[in-house]
Design a protein around this nucleic acid. Sequence first.
DNA 1: TATTACGTTTACGTGCATGTCAAGTATTTT
DNA 2: AAAATACTTGACATGCACGTAAACGTAATA
Lengths: 136, 136
Amino acid sequence: MNELRESEEIESIGDLAKELGLTTRTLRYWEEVAIIESVQRADGATRGYTPYYVRRIKFIMKLKELGLTIKELQDLYIAYGEAKQTEKMIPKLVEILDDHIHKVDEKMAKLASLRKELVDYRQRMMTKFNLPKENV
Amino acid sequence: MNELRESEEIESIGDLAKELGLTTRTLRYWEEVAIIESVQRADGATRGYTPYYVRRIKFIMKLKELGLTIKELQDLYIAYGEAKQTEKMIPKLVEILDDHIHKVDEKMAKLASLRKELVDYRQRMMTKFNLPKENV
DNA sequence: TATTACGTTTACGTGCATGTCAAGTATTTT
DNA sequence: AAAATACTTGACATGCACGTAAACGTAATA
């Protein structure tokens, strides 16, 4: 699969999966839902990844680590396609990141109040535990 | 369905669902996964809920609002079955709550660091945006 | 009594993000 | 060229928490 010589131009899906710590299934799925690409090919032909595509996939991985959903990444991919140039996509990316930061803030707020409720509830239970009957 | 007179002993699933703001499907599902009960009955006979069961279901709802999963509630149900008395179940409940509080803490920590990364990343993107080529 | 308004179980559908076959094709190695 | 390995697509499986519909039984009402 590796030509071991100087040509590291095109990488196979298996090699790339190993390199990135993903499964081939994941790479195909991401392509299926249109958040990544591989090189053009005829139907049924083998997928190939140039360093350019690899960089873009790493970029997607980074954003996934940041908690972006497939849906958000799809929006970004569309913007990418429309922008034609990476630079023009950045405002959209920043917008999506802002959106996501906002969502994270909301989640954190919810968890904080949840935590408080849990602790309060726990306290009430503990108190109840030290009392006699009349429960449930 | 309601006998309108003094007997509010046994409630039907439809009435209870409405009262609690759940669907009948949810009540049957919860019973199916063994986190709630209804009165004993022959196969295929109609479900009935006494005030006791209603209280227990409200209790489960409360815990679900607190974010407890079905799995956690199943553990609690088992403990309830073993305890035979509500009071004896409380230590287990407190344990489950502690576990859950811990999980919430972990989630919050993750979100906090995620948020930081997002903001940093956003900042890097903004900076990049004000620079010329050499992207992706 | 006929209709309607419930109730019952069984079982497939949903949304995510893959995992896991299966059957066939392509490529690489011997 | 043959064998071994890796690739392809398609489709079903997973876990959660139900939604939805089918096909049927029962109970209340006009």
